[in-house]
Design a protein around this nucleic acid. Structure first.
Lengths: 348, 348
DNA sequence: TTGTATGCGTTATCAT
DNA sequence: ATGATAACGCATACAA
């Protein structure tokens, strides 16, 4: 990895200064694009930089700069197993990253309540914050609130669920259409014989669910003609309702071969399916690897889980927030979060 | 993530010194378990540490220490697409890690030739090296060579393929039995109707292949009685031979429903299958997501790829090497590499 | 057994 | 427009 013939030790700002025949301060000014340097001197320094192959030591830089990143994560209220996993991952990233000079704060909000979300966003003390990562449903009010946060200079990334027409700096999460297509392909290949697929979610108002459904249908209708995906059942976040509509649907549909759950509430879904006594004949696909779904996989109750790695999500969000704060570019390729397929045998 | 009521800035060694009423040097001695401090003083310092919640800034420490890790990676010769991907991942980890004070060197050896491997290991200048990560087949001579390297104080990790009874410090890679089981489950669920599965690899002498086969058979024989996994075909690293034996087998077996390739040479395998004209009726499963297999997935020639993330592999290897060098513990959970299932729709 | 002083690579504040 | 110098948090050679 080291250039041929290069000196053993990496060049420092001192080496650059010597090579360019200027002082440390001037090198620093050029390196950090600060004003007050003649074009000619800039060129001399840049020459020295490329000649010696200098790369800045980020950690030393942050040490000297006494930089402190203050980030907040806005997550759905604590009833969500997925959000809990995210928070745990955040805690872990924090402990292994303490040296990264990053202060983290987690805020939980009732995700069903757009008003509460906006209130939280508005009440945020933006002067004590450098960046915000948020996982919230898309509403015009939230988009407006994001706009105000951007006006006050915050770095804003959307997490898991995007706000496409807002002023957020970046989206960290998977492509929901591709995730839905993956589910469609798995379902099509897994189920035996012709039949119907039950599709369930919280609400198709949620862009994620809508896109997953689009991807799912695209693959099923194009490649698996013998199976039919039924119209989406929506629980509207009401677990009792979820239980009821699933029970009704399973009882009514004799040709059911599979169930695709695009949203949350999978513990309730599973208990409804168990109650029907037909779980054994069904292939069940869900999103997000929660503790309950781990068990369901091990018990052969769920065939596959489409997941995104929460560790990657938070690390990516942190990297992006830091880069935005420092006006540095984002390497999109590195921030692309994978769609994971988890089966009983490759459970992490 | 921040304790309630804690001061805004993180405590430093200075704070500890003040709190404990000792000097910086004494704090350092206690923190780094150096000798020459009275038990009573040690206790005082440790008290201050826990009272203030001090955590050392690793980067500042490494900066002061002028620590340079010098690691080498021993990989199979350049004909292997997988090894190339590993080397690229290494290059990337290096560029984004330059500040981690780590020097990297990649050595390619003909993996078929145990003698060449041992020669390379013996010729290594251990005084200019702190650690070695190696991906080589298991032989007694290699195990002995590892023993000598350990004697000379090197940190040694095995990568992808383990040397279980050697003195290596750690193995970074996936559990081959679990990978084989995952393949078995996928194959069993994917193929239609009863039939036979062709199983191919370089050589069952390789522990990985053997274990993959064990896992594969365990799942197939227990859960998918209607399909039969045929005896393993071995290519012995000879692509012409691979082509020949696959062509012969496909021609002879009329009930073939799937092909499971546990080893390398998948481009040749695919061309043999294509030539047979029966690729359309077969489910093909392979290991490792090489460029060729990406295309094969997209063209529906391969159903699924069981992969390990090369980025994770190298980052994990680097973390482990650094920890071993510094006599720090290894967090096994963090170093567990996942078995990834890649389909056409979730190609990264 | 303990303390002082200096340096690591970078940034930033003061002079000049 | 440029340079000298002092931090940042930690380690360490040397002095006491």
């Amino acid at each position: 990895m080291r250039e041929k013939g290069a000196d053993l030790a990496r060049p420092t700002v001192h080496d650059i200064a010597k090579e360019a025949g200027v002082s440390l301060a001037t090198v620093d000014r050029v390196l950090n694009a600060r004003p007050g340097v003649r074009a000619k001197t800039i060129a001399r320094v840049n020459d020295a930089v490329s000649r010696l192959g200098y790369v800045r030591d980020t950690y030393a830089a942050n040490l000297a700069r006494q930089r402190q990143y203050r980030f907040a994560f806005l997550l759905p209220e604590s009833s969500s197993q997925f959000a809990n996993a995210l928070q745990e991952a955040l805690q872990e990233a924090y402990s292994s990253n303490v040296a990264d000079r990053t202060e983290l704060k987690v805020i939980r909000v009732p995700s069903q309540d757009p008003h509460a979300i906006v209130r939280t966003l508005k009440s945020m003390n933006t002067s004590r914050l450098d960046g915000l990562a948020m996982m919230v449903p898309e509403t015009p009010q939230v988009r407006d609130a994001v706009s105000r946060l951007k006006d006050s200079g915050l770095a804003v990334v959307t997490l898991v669920s995007d706000l496409p027409n807002s002023r957020r700096d970046f989206f960290v999460g998977v492509n929901s259409i591709a995730a839905g297509r993956t589910a469609g392909l798995l379902m099509g290949r897994f189920v035996r014989g012709p039949g119907e697929i039950l599709v369930v979610t919280d609400s198709l108002q949620s862009r994620d669910s809508l896109e997953r459904r689009l991807g799912f249908d695209a693959v099923i209708s194009r490649e698996f003609r013998s199976i039919t995906a039924l119209p989406t059942l929506e629980s509207y976040g009401d677990l009792a309702r979820l239980q009821r509509i699933v029970e009704t649907a399973v009882a009514a549909r004799r040709d059911l071969v599979g169930v695709y759950s695009m949203g949350s509430g999978n513990m309730t879904l599973m208990s409804a399916l168990r109650g029907s006594g037909r779980l054994g004949e069904l292939d069940v696909l869900v999103h997000e690897l929660t503790p309950a779904m781990r068990c369901a996989l091990q018990d052969n109750e769920v065939t596959a889980v489409i997941a995104q790695n929460v560790g990657h999500l938070v690390r990516s969000a942190l990297r992006v927030l830091r880069n935005v704060c420092d006006h540095r570019p984002i390497y999109e390729a590195q921030e692309r979060v994978r769609i994971e397929v988890v089966l009983r045998e490759n459970l992490p």
